[in-house]
Each structure stands twice: as structure tokens, then as C-alpha cells.
Design a protein around this nucleic acid. Structure first.
Lengths: 249, 249
DNA sequence: TAAAAACATGCGGTTTTTTGCATTATTTAG
DNA sequence: CTAAATAATGCAAAAAACCGCATGTTTTTA
């Protein structure tokens, strides 16, 4: 087998599966490990793939590996935030959780909006505070350093005494069978009470999190009124949720 | 599974859910905890995520810092803050108000200090949150946008149920006849209750504010245990307060 | 055409990387 | 405080990478 043939084969494999193992290439083409190594070396030098210990990965795969953290899914979140904001009217009492999507929403709130926002998320509070016309109510309790949100019985009891018009939850995982699931026990408690204390429940999530599962159950899909993603409501992945009676924006 | 693949998966999870548990990563990819820990170690070293006990957090989510714009009287405030910190011991329950001096103190808290801080000041909460070893309890209520602190009956009631070891107040005006005075009605209510709920009351102020007067009365000098300024305790301006029975640092 | 040069490939030995395990701290939670 | 979970550390085995060199093969060129 000629050198060129080998390299073409390698590239095809890498583009097909996003990864190749040096080992399997040796066997596939019955050449020594050294030869494969040198092939990968060349392909790597010309930027056709990325060599790693044990094989190689496709260039595109590698780009996903290191997204610039600041802009990761930023545009998606902005789209979501804008859709969400359209649901808020003057005078409303709005309950929100934490999470990057909620923060993005807080940043994009129109200047003239006059409403009351209630949250335990410190980053969210900081954003709301910068807004000229909205009132901010902080749910007090002990801070969970991981999620930067107040958690505990006090916060939950406080939410109990509230009946908000609408509630925005950034969610970590949702699927049709299990509904919303999360990975933080304390946050789950909060979200459950927030859902109970709101007339309308709006879930915000980037589409990647749809049909994924986390350890703790928050609520079933029946509790969700609106689901917002960066996708068009006509997207196939969203249809099951529409069928389940959820308004999808 | 290749090392790079694993790390890609980890980053993806962390950027998606803001948090991952080492444990679930082990299971997901069927490798030992050690391998995961070393992966997290590397990703952490290159700043792709933040390693914590039991897993990792996303970098971007963790980076919320409050804008530190004020350099006015910075050195003075640092001197005051350092004196104040010397009064805090491990295990203490510390009640603090807001204000730039308190924020400065929050920033200078020694890393190994293990105490519980209770406050309604959002900038203070943000600083306390960044500290590795202290617990933060937020007093919830409506935010006063001018002072960036929660004010109202809820906050006051919550303080009532606390008996703190020590209380740090950044004060706006103090003189011998009227004691502490302030210019914000809501904040005055809070400070009064904080004083009642603390075994020891410490007042922080730059010397400019000594012997000045504001519209609302907070408390007399008899309620103050310690007064801290940037001046040497031997300074003439402070002598009347020492005579009044206040410890001056 | 024949020698020389350049290239490709594989082999043996060495070095580096990766990984899991055992043991010992450290941290966390009840 | 105590017990369980998690982290750090050193170690060892396996895998992979690397290096120099020998052996062919192809290309260049005199």
C-alpha cells in the first residue's frame, strides 16, 4: 500500500469517525506503528488532523474541544433570552432562578420595563440591580457557593408566601419521560417551590440539553407551560414537547 | 477512549451544566477516579474549568466579580479593614452592613479564616462568596438600589432572630453628642437592629466623618464597643471617644 | 546506464505517557 | 467528633512515542 493511499484512508477514517487509533490503522493496512506514526505526523503538520497520544482526532472535533469560554453558546442564550423577555409585561411579579441563561436575560431586559423580580441568585441580583426601573427582591438564606444562589428552608418558605405571575427557570436537563431533572439537590428544592408559587412556568434551555437526564427529579413536563430554546418551534426535536401540551417558543 | 476525547467530553459537560461530578464522569467513561482527577487537574491548570472537591465547575460561571471602581480613600480604608479583621476569630458569626469600607474588609479577609458572615449588602455577598472558607448568609428583602443592600421588614425580622458575635458597621457620621447618624431611613432601621442583635458593635469610618452629623439618628455612643479609623488611637480627635468608653483602634 | 541521492519502511532499544492501584492525607457531612 | 468520600502521592506495568540505523525502493543526475 502506497503512502498516499494510506494517508487518504486515514483522513477518510478521521473525517468519518472524528477519531482513529494508531493501533487499528496498523492492522487495517498491515504496516508498522512507525509508519502510521510518521503518516499521522505529516498529516498533523499540514493541519489535516490533530495527533494525540494513541491516535488522532479530526480538526473539527478539536475545535469543539476548546470553545472560547466567554462566547460559548452566547448567541444561543441571547436568542433564548429575547424570546423569554417577550413574555414579561409591565407590573408583573417575576420569579427567576440562576444560571447563565437567566443572567443573559437579566442583561437584556429593556430599560423601560417596570416589573418586580424575585430571585436568590446573586449574579442575577447584580444584573437586576443595574436596571433602572425594576424592583428587586432577594430571597435570603445561606449561599451555595457552587451555584451562587441562596438555598435552604428560609428561601423556600419565602417563596411559599409569594404568588408570582411568571417564573423563569434555566434548566440543566429535560426529557419527555422524566421532565426536568437537575444535579443539585438544594437547587431542586428551590425550583420545585418556585414552580408551585407561579402561575406560569417558563423553562429556558439551549437545545443541547433537551433529551438529557440528571440525577434529581424536579417536575414532570405537565408542570411546564412554556419551553424556550434557541431553535425554531418547528424543529423536529421540539415536536414531542408540543404534543405534550407545552407551548414552545 | 482517548485522553483528549475524555477531556473534550468533560469540558462539554461542564460548559453545558456548569458543574460535573467526578463520580459520574468515571461511570460515563468507565475509567478510574484517578484518571478523571488528572484530567480535571490538567484542564484546571490551563484554566478551562475550576476544580472543586468532588468535581469541577465551569470557568465562565464562576467568574462573577463586582466592579471595584472606587479608589477614593483606598489606602485609608485598607488600614481600617486590616484593623477590623484582627477582631475576627475562627468560628465567629459576623454581621456586616454595606459600604466601601466593609467591601474592602471583605476583600482582605485571610484565606484560612473560617467564619459565618451575615449581610444584606450585595457587593459584600459577592466578595464573601469568592472566599473559600467562609459561609455566607444573605438577608433577603427588597433591594435598595442606592445602597445596594436589602432593606425592609423581612430583613429586620431575620436579624432579630440572630445573635451574632460581632457586628461591623460602616458609618456615615458620628459625633459625641448624637452618636451615629445616617442619611437613609431604611438603612437606619437595619443598623439599629444589627446593633441590638450583636454582642459587640464595631464601627468603621474614615476620620473625615468623625464629628459630622446626618439627619437620622442610629444610636448613641454608648452602644458602640469599638471605633476604627485610619488614624493612630493616640490622635487628639479620637480622645473624646476614648473618654466616652469606646475602644479605639 | 549506473552511481548517487533521496525516500520509505521496519526493527531494536530507550524514553515518555498513560493508567490503575495502594497508601496516606484531607475534606465533607451527619 | 467520627465516618465516609475525595484528593494527593508514589509506584509499577503497559502502551505508545521516539531515535538511530539498516534495508530496500524510487528518483535524480552525470
Amino acid at each position: 500500500m502506497l503512502k498516499k493511499e494510506r494517508q487518504t484512508y486515514i483522513l477518510r477514517q478521521v473525517n468519518l469517525h472524528n477519531k482513529v487509533l494508531s493501533n487499528s490503522l496498523c492492522k487495517d493496512m498491515s504496516v508498522s506503528e512507525d509508519t502510521i506514526r510518521r503518516d499521522l505526523q505529516e498529516l498533523s503538520e499540514t493541519g489535516k488532523l490533530v495527533k494525540v497520544h494513541g491516535g488522532a482526532l479530526s480538526q473539527s472535533f478539536n475545535k469543539i474541544t476548546y470553545p472560547s469560554t466567554d462566547t460559548y453558546a452566547q448567541t444561543d442564550k441571547r436568542i433564548i433570552a429575547e424570546k423569554a423577555i417577550s413574555l414579561i409585561n409591565d407590573g408583573m411579579f417575576v420569579l427567576t432562578g440562576g444560571g447563565t441563561t437567566i443572567i443573559e436575560m437579566a442583561r437584556l431586559l429593556p430599560t423601560q420595563l417596570h416589573a418586580t423580580f424575585i430571585t436568590g441568585s446573586i449574579p442575577a441580583v447584580v444584573e437586576y440591580m443595574n436596571h433602572p426601573a425594576i424592583d428587586v427582591i432577594v430571597l435570603g438564606d445561606k449561599i451555595s457557593k457552587v451555584s451562587k444562589i441562596t438555598v435552604g428552608a428560609d428561601a423556600i418558605n419565602r417563596i411559599k408566601s409569594i404568588k408570582a405571575d411568571i417564573c423563569f427557570l434555566g434548566i440543566n436537563a429535560i426529557d419527555l419521560q422524566n421532565g426536568i431533572t437537575d444535579n443539585d439537590w438544594d437547587v431542586v428544592q428551590l425550583k420545585q417551590q418556585m414552580i408551585l408559587s407561579s402561575q406560569k412556568v417558563v423553562c429556558l434551555t439551549i437545545s443541547e440539553k433537551i433529551n438529557s437526564l440528571q440525577p434529581f427529579h424536579v417536575c414532570g413536563t405537565d408542570k411546564i407551560d412554556v419551553l424556550i430554546t434557541e431553535l425554531d418551534p418547528g424543529d423536529p426535536i421540539l415536536q414531542p414537547y408540543i404534543s405534550a401540551g407545552i407551548t414552545v417558543l
